[in-house]
Design a protein around this nucleic acid. Structure first.
Lengths: 210, 210
DNA sequence: CCAAACCGTGAACCATGATTCACTGTTCAC
DNA sequence: GTGAACAGTGAATCATGGTTCACGGTTTGG
Protein backbone atom coordinates (compact mmCIF):
# COMPACT_ATOMS: atom_id res chain seq x y z
CA UNK A 1 0.00 0.00 0.00
CA UNK A 2 2.56 2.56 1.00
CA UNK A 3 5.20 1.21 -1.36
CA UNK A 4 2.86 1.93 -4.27
CA UNK A 5 2.53 5.55 -3.31
CA UNK A 6 6.13 6.29 -2.47
CA UNK A 7 8.29 7.38 -5.40
CA UNK A 8 10.26 4.58 -6.95
CA UNK A 9 13.78 4.29 -5.69
CA UNK A 10 16.07 2.29 -7.91
CA UNK A 11 13.67 0.72 -10.36
CA UNK A 12 10.88 -1.78 -10.38
CA UNK A 13 13.02 -4.71 -9.44
CA UNK A 14 14.46 -3.13 -6.31
CA UNK A 15 11.03 -1.98 -5.33
CA UNK A 16 9.56 -5.46 -5.56
CA UNK A 17 12.49 -6.95 -3.83
CA UNK A 18 12.06 -4.60 -0.92
CA UNK A 19 8.35 -5.34 -0.82
CA UNK A 20 9.00 -9.06 -0.62
CA UNK A 21 11.50 -8.57 2.12
CA UNK A 22 9.05 -6.46 4.05
CA UNK A 23 6.38 -9.08 3.59
CA UNK A 24 8.70 -11.71 4.99
CA UNK A 25 9.56 -9.65 8.03
CA UNK A 26 5.98 -8.62 8.61
CA UNK A 27 4.70 -12.16 8.15
CA UNK A 28 7.24 -13.56 10.54
CA UNK A 29 6.39 -10.93 13.09
CA UNK A 30 2.69 -11.61 12.87
CA UNK A 31 3.35 -15.30 13.31
CA UNK A 32 5.56 -14.70 16.32
CA UNK A 33 3.09 -12.26 17.81
CA UNK A 34 0.46 -15.00 17.65
CA UNK A 35 2.42 -18.01 18.75
CA UNK A 36 5.92 -17.09 19.76
CA UNK A 37 9.21 -18.21 18.27
CA UNK A 38 8.40 -21.87 18.52
CA UNK A 39 5.82 -21.74 15.76
CA UNK A 40 8.07 -19.89 13.37
CA UNK A 41 9.32 -22.69 11.13
CA UNK A 42 10.67 -21.55 7.79
CA UNK A 43 7.87 -23.41 6.08
CA UNK A 44 5.16 -21.60 8.01
CA UNK A 45 6.94 -18.28 7.83
CA UNK A 46 7.02 -18.60 4.06
CA UNK A 47 3.36 -19.49 3.92
CA UNK A 48 2.40 -16.58 6.12
CA UNK A 49 4.47 -14.19 4.03
CA UNK A 50 3.00 -15.57 0.84
CA UNK A 51 6.28 -16.74 -0.64
CA UNK A 52 8.13 -20.02 -1.15
CA UNK A 53 10.65 -21.27 1.37
CA UNK A 54 13.48 -20.74 -1.06
CA UNK A 55 12.59 -17.08 -1.31
CA UNK A 56 13.37 -16.63 2.33
CA UNK A 57 16.96 -17.48 1.55
CA UNK A 58 17.11 -14.89 -1.21
CA UNK A 59 16.67 -12.26 1.49
CA UNK A 60 18.22 -13.77 4.59
CA UNK A 61 21.24 -16.04 4.86
CA UNK A 62 19.70 -18.14 7.61
CA UNK A 63 16.78 -18.52 9.91
CA UNK A 64 18.82 -17.07 12.74
CA UNK A 65 19.36 -13.82 10.91
CA UNK A 66 15.77 -13.54 9.87
CA UNK A 67 14.53 -14.03 13.40
CA UNK A 68 17.14 -11.71 14.79
CA UNK A 69 16.01 -8.98 12.45
CA UNK A 70 12.39 -9.53 13.27
CA UNK A 71 13.19 -9.36 16.94
CA UNK A 72 15.26 -6.25 16.52
CA UNK A 73 12.51 -4.50 14.64
CA UNK A 74 9.77 -5.35 17.09
CA UNK A 75 11.90 -4.70 20.14
CA UNK A 76 13.09 -1.39 18.80
CA UNK A 77 9.51 -0.30 18.26
CA UNK A 78 8.64 -1.11 21.85
CA UNK A 79 11.74 0.53 23.19
CA UNK A 80 11.07 3.67 21.18
CA UNK A 81 7.73 4.14 22.88
CA UNK A 82 9.22 3.91 26.33
CA UNK A 83 12.30 5.95 25.44
CA UNK A 84 10.14 8.64 23.95
CA UNK A 85 8.13 9.00 27.10
CA UNK A 86 11.24 8.89 29.23
CA UNK A 87 12.93 11.56 27.16
CA UNK A 88 10.00 13.90 26.93
CA UNK A 89 10.55 17.06 28.99
CA UNK A 90 8.15 16.72 31.87
CA UNK A 91 7.58 17.66 35.52
CA UNK A 92 10.53 15.63 36.78
CA UNK A 93 12.66 12.57 36.21
CA UNK A 94 10.71 10.41 38.62
CA UNK A 95 7.46 11.38 37.01
CA UNK A 96 8.85 10.29 33.70
CA UNK A 97 10.11 7.08 35.22
CA UNK A 98 6.60 6.40 36.40
CA UNK A 99 5.17 7.16 32.99
CA UNK A 100 7.75 4.95 31.30
CA UNK A 101 6.88 2.03 33.56
CA UNK A 102 3.21 2.50 32.92
CA UNK A 103 3.79 2.60 29.19
CA UNK A 104 5.88 -0.53 29.33
CA UNK A 105 3.21 -2.39 31.26
CA UNK A 106 0.47 -1.10 29.02
CA UNK A 107 2.19 -2.27 25.87
CA UNK A 108 2.96 -5.68 27.31
CA UNK A 109 -0.67 -5.94 28.31
CA UNK A 110 -1.85 -5.13 24.80
CA UNK A 111 0.17 -7.94 23.24
CA UNK A 112 0.98 -10.60 25.82
CA UNK A 113 2.28 -13.27 23.48
CA UNK A 114 4.57 -10.85 21.72
CA UNK A 115 5.70 -9.48 25.05
CA UNK A 116 6.59 -12.95 26.21
CA UNK A 117 8.40 -13.67 22.97
CA UNK A 118 10.40 -10.48 23.27
CA UNK A 119 11.13 -10.74 26.96
CA UNK A 120 11.52 -14.32 27.94
CA UNK A 121 10.61 -17.06 25.50
CA UNK A 122 13.47 -19.43 24.75
CA UNK A 123 14.84 -18.56 21.35
CA UNK A 124 17.61 -18.91 18.84
CA UNK A 125 21.00 -17.73 20.12
CA UNK A 126 21.00 -14.83 17.67
CA UNK A 127 17.68 -13.69 19.07
CA UNK A 128 19.01 -14.15 22.55
CA UNK A 129 21.89 -11.84 21.75
CA UNK A 130 19.55 -9.23 20.39
CA UNK A 131 17.42 -9.61 23.48
CA UNK A 132 20.41 -8.93 25.66
CA UNK A 133 21.15 -5.77 23.71
CA UNK A 134 17.53 -4.73 24.01
CA UNK A 135 17.57 -5.17 27.76
CA UNK A 136 20.71 -3.10 27.95
CA UNK A 137 18.98 -0.40 25.96
CA UNK A 138 16.06 -0.34 28.37
CA UNK A 139 18.50 -0.24 31.24
CA UNK A 140 20.21 2.68 29.55
CA UNK A 141 16.96 4.59 29.38
CA UNK A 142 16.24 3.98 33.03
CA UNK A 143 19.81 4.74 34.03
CA UNK A 144 19.63 8.10 32.27
CA UNK A 145 16.46 8.94 34.17
CA UNK A 146 18.08 7.99 37.43
CA UNK A 147 21.14 10.13 36.76
CA UNK A 148 18.87 13.02 36.08
CA UNK A 149 16.87 12.38 39.19
CA UNK A 150 20.03 12.18 41.25
CA UNK A 151 21.36 15.39 39.72
CA UNK A 152 18.07 17.09 40.46
CA UNK A 153 18.21 15.88 44.04
CA UNK A 154 15.06 13.82 43.72
CA UNK A 155 16.90 10.72 44.83
CA UNK A 156 20.12 9.97 46.61
CA UNK A 157 23.09 9.02 44.45
CA UNK A 158 23.33 5.33 43.57
CA UNK A 159 24.83 2.98 41.05
CA UNK A 160 22.45 3.71 38.22
CA UNK A 161 23.67 0.78 36.15
CA UNK A 162 22.80 -1.78 38.77
CA UNK A 163 19.54 -0.10 39.68
CA UNK A 164 18.48 0.18 36.07
CA UNK A 165 19.18 -3.49 35.39
CA UNK A 166 17.27 -4.43 38.53
CA UNK A 167 14.32 -2.34 37.42
CA UNK A 168 14.26 -4.05 34.06
CA UNK A 169 14.29 -7.44 35.72
CA UNK A 170 11.67 -6.48 38.26
CA UNK A 171 9.28 -5.24 35.60
CA UNK A 172 9.70 -8.29 33.44
CA UNK A 173 9.33 -10.81 36.19
CA UNK A 174 6.38 -9.13 37.83
CA UNK A 175 4.57 -8.75 34.53
CA UNK A 176 5.23 -12.13 32.95
CA UNK A 177 3.35 -14.14 35.51
CA UNK A 178 0.10 -12.16 35.34
CA UNK A 179 0.36 -11.86 31.57
CA UNK A 180 0.56 -15.61 31.18
CA UNK A 181 -3.03 -16.00 32.29
CA UNK A 182 -5.25 -13.02 32.71
CA UNK A 183 -3.96 -9.49 32.43
CA UNK A 184 -1.89 -7.07 34.41
CA UNK A 185 -4.40 -4.77 36.00
CA UNK A 186 -3.90 -1.15 37.09
CA UNK A 187 -3.37 -2.26 40.66
CA UNK A 188 -0.36 -4.33 39.64
CA UNK A 189 1.05 -1.46 37.67
CA UNK A 190 0.61 0.92 40.57
CA UNK A 191 2.31 -1.55 42.85
CA UNK A 192 5.23 -1.78 40.46
CA UNK A 193 5.58 1.94 40.22
CA UNK A 194 5.71 2.26 43.96
CA UNK A 195 8.17 -0.59 44.21
CA UNK A 196 10.48 1.00 41.68
CA UNK A 197 10.32 4.55 42.98
CA UNK A 198 10.95 3.29 46.48
CA UNK A 199 13.79 1.15 45.31
CA UNK A 200 15.75 4.09 43.99
CA UNK A 201 15.04 6.11 47.07
CA UNK A 202 12.40 8.43 45.70
CA UNK A 203 9.54 9.78 47.77
CA UNK A 204 6.84 7.09 47.71
CA UNK A 205 4.07 9.28 46.42
CA UNK A 206 6.14 11.85 44.61
CA UNK A 207 6.23 15.29 46.26
CA UNK A 208 3.76 17.28 44.28
CA UNK A 209 5.45 20.60 43.65
CA UNK A 210 2.25 21.97 42.15
CA UNK B 1 30.84 -44.24 47.44
CA UNK B 2 27.97 -43.60 49.76
CA UNK B 3 25.84 -46.31 48.22
CA UNK B 4 28.43 -48.89 49.22
CA UNK B 5 28.29 -47.87 52.85
CA UNK B 6 24.59 -47.49 53.22
CA UNK B 7 22.70 -50.64 54.16
CA UNK B 8 21.30 -52.44 51.17
CA UNK B 9 17.69 -51.70 50.48
CA UNK B 10 16.00 -54.15 48.20
CA UNK B 11 18.88 -56.27 47.00
CA UNK B 12 21.92 -55.88 44.83
CA UNK B 13 20.03 -55.19 41.67
CA UNK B 14 18.03 -52.31 43.06
CA UNK B 15 21.14 -50.88 44.59
CA UNK B 16 23.02 -50.88 41.32
CA UNK B 17 20.07 -49.53 39.48
CA UNK B 18 19.85 -46.62 41.86
CA UNK B 19 23.57 -46.04 41.55
CA UNK B 20 23.31 -45.89 37.78
CA UNK B 21 20.47 -43.48 37.97
CA UNK B 22 22.38 -41.29 40.34
CA UNK B 23 25.38 -41.38 38.05
CA UNK B 24 23.22 -40.24 35.18
CA UNK B 25 21.76 -37.35 37.10
CA UNK B 26 25.11 -36.34 38.54
CA UNK B 27 26.82 -36.60 35.19
CA UNK B 28 24.18 -34.52 33.49
CA UNK B 29 24.40 -31.92 36.18
CA UNK B 30 28.16 -31.68 35.93
CA UNK B 31 27.88 -31.28 32.20
CA UNK B 32 25.25 -28.57 32.54
CA UNK B 33 27.23 -26.81 35.23
CA UNK B 34 30.14 -26.62 32.81
CA UNK B 35 28.42 -25.73 29.59
CA UNK B 36 24.75 -25.17 30.10
CA UNK B 37 21.81 -27.04 28.62
CA UNK B 38 22.99 -26.63 25.08
CA UNK B 39 25.87 -29.05 25.51
CA UNK B 40 23.75 -31.73 27.11
CA UNK B 41 23.12 -34.08 24.18
CA UNK B 42 22.06 -37.57 25.15
CA UNK B 43 25.24 -38.88 23.64
CA UNK B 44 27.46 -36.67 25.75
CA UNK B 45 25.35 -37.10 28.84
CA UNK B 46 25.77 -40.85 28.52
CA UNK B 47 29.50 -40.54 28.06
CA UNK B 48 29.83 -38.26 31.05
CA UNK B 49 27.79 -40.61 33.18
CA UNK B 50 29.78 -43.60 32.02
CA UNK B 51 26.86 -45.47 30.49
CA UNK B 52 25.48 -46.16 27.02
CA UNK B 53 22.83 -43.96 25.50
CA UNK B 54 20.26 -46.72 25.68
CA UNK B 55 20.76 -46.90 29.42
CA UNK B 56 19.49 -43.38 29.77
CA UNK B 57 16.15 -44.58 28.51
CA UNK B 58 16.02 -47.36 31.07
CA UNK B 59 15.84 -44.67 33.70
CA UNK B 60 14.11 -41.76 32.01
CA UNK B 61 11.37 -41.85 29.41
CA UNK B 62 12.81 -38.91 27.49
CA UNK B 63 15.44 -36.28 27.44
CA UNK B 64 12.90 -33.74 28.64
CA UNK B 65 12.21 -35.66 31.80
CA UNK B 66 15.86 -36.25 32.51
CA UNK B 67 16.70 -32.58 32.15
CA UNK B 68 13.67 -31.56 34.15
CA UNK B 69 14.76 -33.79 37.00
CA UNK B 70 18.31 -32.51 36.87
CA UNK B 71 17.04 -28.97 36.93
CA UNK B 72 14.68 -29.69 39.79
CA UNK B 73 17.42 -31.24 41.86
CA UNK B 74 19.93 -28.46 41.32
CA UNK B 75 17.38 -25.71 41.71
CA UNK B 76 15.98 -27.25 44.86
CA UNK B 77 19.43 -27.36 46.38
CA UNK B 78 19.94 -23.67 45.68
CA UNK B 79 16.53 -22.76 46.94
CA UNK B 80 17.06 -24.73 50.12
CA UNK B 81 20.11 -22.64 51.00
CA UNK B 82 18.23 -19.40 50.59
CA UNK B 83 15.06 -20.67 52.24
CA UNK B 84 17.06 -21.95 55.18
CA UNK B 85 18.61 -18.57 55.77
CA UNK B 86 15.31 -16.83 55.30
CA UNK B 87 13.57 -19.12 57.75
CA UNK B 88 16.22 -19.06 60.42
CA UNK B 89 15.05 -17.13 63.47
CA UNK B 90 17.13 -13.96 63.44
CA UNK B 91 17.13 -10.29 64.42
CA UNK B 92 14.31 -9.37 62.09
CA UNK B 93 12.62 -10.14 58.78
CA UNK B 94 14.51 -7.49 56.85
CA UNK B 95 17.81 -8.71 58.19
CA UNK B 96 16.96 -12.14 56.96
CA UNK B 97 15.92 -10.74 53.63
CA UNK B 98 19.29 -9.13 53.36
CA UNK B 99 21.04 -12.36 54.30
CA UNK B 100 18.96 -14.30 51.79
CA UNK B 101 19.88 -11.93 48.99
CA UNK B 102 23.52 -12.13 49.89
CA UNK B 103 23.39 -15.89 49.93
CA UNK B 104 21.69 -15.95 46.56
CA UNK B 105 24.29 -13.69 45.02
CA UNK B 106 27.10 -15.59 46.63
CA UNK B 107 25.93 -18.90 45.26
CA UNK B 108 25.42 -17.52 41.80
CA UNK B 109 28.90 -16.10 41.96
CA UNK B 110 30.39 -19.43 42.90
CA UNK B 111 28.93 -21.19 39.86
CA UNK B 112 28.11 -18.67 37.14
CA UNK B 113 27.44 -21.12 34.33
CA UNK B 114 25.11 -23.17 36.45
CA UNK B 115 23.43 -20.02 37.69
CA UNK B 116 22.83 -18.93 34.13
CA UNK B 117 21.51 -22.35 33.21
CA UNK B 118 19.13 -22.35 36.15
CA UNK B 119 17.99 -18.78 35.82
CA UNK B 120 17.89 -17.79 32.20
CA UNK B 121 19.40 -20.06 29.59
CA UNK B 122 16.94 -21.13 26.92
CA UNK B 123 15.93 -24.67 27.61
CA UNK B 124 13.54 -27.50 26.94
CA UNK B 125 9.90 -26.67 27.72
CA UNK B 126 9.90 -29.13 30.59
CA UNK B 127 12.86 -27.35 32.11
CA UNK B 128 11.17 -24.06 31.49
CA UNK B 129 8.16 -25.24 33.44
CA UNK B 130 10.33 -26.34 36.32
CA UNK B 131 12.08 -23.01 36.20
CA UNK B 132 8.79 -21.22 36.52
CA UNK B 133 7.93 -23.29 39.56
CA UNK B 134 11.34 -22.58 41.03
CA UNK B 135 10.90 -18.85 40.58
CA UNK B 136 7.54 -19.07 42.27
CA UNK B 137 9.17 -20.88 45.14
CA UNK B 138 11.74 -18.13 45.56
CA UNK B 139 8.99 -15.58 45.37
CA UNK B 140 7.17 -17.52 48.07
CA UNK B 141 10.16 -17.31 50.35
CA UNK B 142 10.49 -13.59 49.83
CA UNK B 143 6.77 -13.04 50.16
CA UNK B 144 6.76 -14.80 53.52
CA UNK B 145 9.55 -12.57 54.74
CA UNK B 146 7.67 -9.51 53.59
CA UNK B 147 4.49 -10.57 55.35
CA UNK B 148 6.45 -11.03 58.49
CA UNK B 149 8.13 -7.67 58.09
CA UNK B 150 4.80 -6.00 57.53
CA UNK B 151 3.30 -7.72 60.56
CA UNK B 152 6.27 -6.62 62.64
CA UNK B 153 5.83 -3.08 61.43
CA UNK B 154 9.22 -2.98 59.74
CA UNK B 155 7.63 -2.06 56.44
CA UNK B 156 4.31 -0.66 55.31
CA UNK B 157 1.77 -3.16 54.01
CA UNK B 158 2.09 -3.99 50.32
CA UNK B 159 1.18 -6.65 47.80
CA UNK B 160 3.76 -9.17 48.81
CA UNK B 161 3.15 -11.34 45.77
CA UNK B 162 4.01 -8.60 43.33
CA UNK B 163 6.92 -7.32 45.37
CA UNK B 164 8.36 -10.80 45.78
CA UNK B 165 8.19 -11.49 42.05
CA UNK B 166 9.80 -8.15 41.34
CA UNK B 167 12.59 -8.92 43.76
CA UNK B 168 13.26 -12.23 42.07
CA UNK B 169 13.43 -10.53 38.70
CA UNK B 170 15.60 -7.71 39.95
CA UNK B 171 18.12 -10.07 41.48
CA UNK B 172 18.33 -12.23 38.40
CA UNK B 173 18.67 -9.43 35.94
CA UNK B 174 21.18 -7.47 37.95
CA UNK B 175 23.32 -10.54 38.56
CA UNK B 176 23.25 -12.12 35.12
CA UNK B 177 25.04 -9.33 33.34
CA UNK B 178 28.02 -9.14 35.68
CA UNK B 179 28.18 -12.92 35.96
CA UNK B 180 28.49 -13.28 32.21
CA UNK B 181 31.93 -11.74 32.24
CA UNK B 182 33.71 -11.06 35.48
CA UNK B 183 32.07 -11.59 38.81
CA UNK B 184 29.51 -9.91 40.96
CA UNK B 185 31.52 -8.05 43.56
CA UNK B 186 30.45 -7.11 47.09
CA UNK B 187 29.64 -3.60 45.93
CA UNK B 188 27.05 -4.93 43.53
CA UNK B 189 25.55 -7.11 46.21
CA UNK B 190 25.37 -4.21 48.63
CA UNK B 191 23.70 -2.13 45.97
CA UNK B 192 21.14 -4.84 45.38
CA UNK B 193 20.39 -5.18 49.07
CA UNK B 194 19.77 -1.47 49.35
CA UNK B 195 17.64 -1.49 46.24
CA UNK B 196 15.50 -4.29 47.55
CA UNK B 197 15.08 -3.03 51.07
CA UNK B 198 14.20 0.39 49.76
CA UNK B 199 11.76 -1.10 47.29
CA UNK B 200 9.65 -2.66 49.99
CA UNK B 201 9.77 0.47 52.07
CA UNK B 202 12.25 -0.64 54.70
CA UNK B 203 14.67 1.72 56.36
CA UNK B 204 17.65 1.96 54.00
CA UNK B 205 20.29 0.97 56.51
CA UNK B 206 18.18 -1.10 58.83
CA UNK B 207 17.58 0.43 62.24
CA UNK B 208 20.05 -1.30 64.47
CA UNK B 209 18.11 -2.18 67.59
CA UNK B 210 21.29 -3.48 69.21
C1' DC C 1 20.74 -75.32 39.19
C1' DC C 2 17.42 -73.14 35.96
C1' DA C 3 14.55 -70.08 33.76
C1' DA C 4 12.54 -65.71 33.98
C1' DA C 5 13.33 -60.98 34.58
C1' DC C 6 16.13 -57.41 34.01
C1' DC C 7 20.14 -54.15 33.32
C1' DG C 8 23.28 -52.25 30.08
C1' DT C 9 24.88 -51.77 25.32
C1' DG C 10 25.56 -48.91 21.11
C1' DA C 11 24.84 -49.04 16.35
C1' DA C 12 20.88 -48.24 13.50
C1' DC C 13 16.77 -45.77 12.92
C1' DC C 14 13.77 -41.76 12.39
C1' DA C 15 11.55 -37.27 12.78
C1' DT C 16 12.08 -32.69 12.37
C1' DG C 17 13.00 -28.83 10.09
C1' DA C 18 16.66 -25.95 7.98
C1' DT C 19 18.88 -25.39 3.58
C1' DT C 20 19.81 -26.13 -1.35
C1' DC C 21 19.25 -26.00 -6.38
C1' DA C 22 17.69 -26.74 -11.09
C1' DC C 23 14.20 -24.40 -13.38
C1' DT C 24 10.85 -20.61 -14.88
C1' DG C 25 9.45 -16.07 -15.79
C1' DT C 26 10.67 -11.10 -15.49
C1' DT C 27 13.49 -6.95 -15.62
C1' DC C 28 17.51 -4.43 -16.87
C1' DA C 29 21.47 -2.74 -19.73
C1' DC C 30 23.02 -1.96 -24.15
C1' DG D 1 15.34 -6.51 -29.42
C1' DT D 2 18.22 -9.56 -26.96
C1' DG D 3 21.03 -11.80 -23.69
C1' DA D 4 22.62 -11.53 -18.96
C1' DA D 5 21.17 -11.04 -14.30
C1' DC D 6 18.08 -11.97 -11.06
C1' DA D 7 13.61 -12.84 -8.09
C1' DG D 8 10.77 -16.59 -7.05
C1' DT D 9 9.67 -21.55 -6.72
C1' DG D 10 9.10 -25.87 -3.90
C1' DA D 11 10.41 -30.56 -3.99
C1' DA D 12 14.55 -32.93 -2.69
C1' DT D 13 18.42 -33.05 0.26
C1' DC D 14 20.94 -33.00 4.61
C1' DA D 15 22.27 -32.53 9.38
C1' DT D 16 21.30 -33.07 13.92
C1' DG D 17 20.31 -35.52 17.65
C1' DG D 18 16.62 -38.02 20.14
C1' DT D 19 14.90 -42.72 20.43
C1' DT D 20 14.64 -47.72 19.62
C1' DC D 21 15.81 -52.59 19.88
C1' DA D 22 18.04 -57.09 19.32
C1' DC D 23 21.59 -58.95 21.83
C1' DG D 24 24.66 -60.63 25.82
C1' DG D 25 25.63 -60.84 30.75
C1' DT D 26 23.88 -60.85 35.62
C1' DT D 27 20.76 -61.27 39.49
C1' DT D 28 16.74 -63.37 41.45
C1' DG D 29 13.24 -66.63 43.15
C1' DG D 30 12.16 -71.30 43.63
Amino acid sequence: MEAAILPRIGGLRAERRAATRDAIVAGTLSLVAEGGWSVASMHDVARRAGVATGTLYRHFPSKSELLAEVFAEAAARELAVVADIAGRPAPGPLRRLRAAIEAFAHRANAAPTLAYALMAEPADPAVEAARLANKRAYAGVFAALLEEAAAAGEIAPLDTGVAAAAIVGALQEALLGPLAHGRAGPRLVAELVTFTINAVGGAPHGHDPA
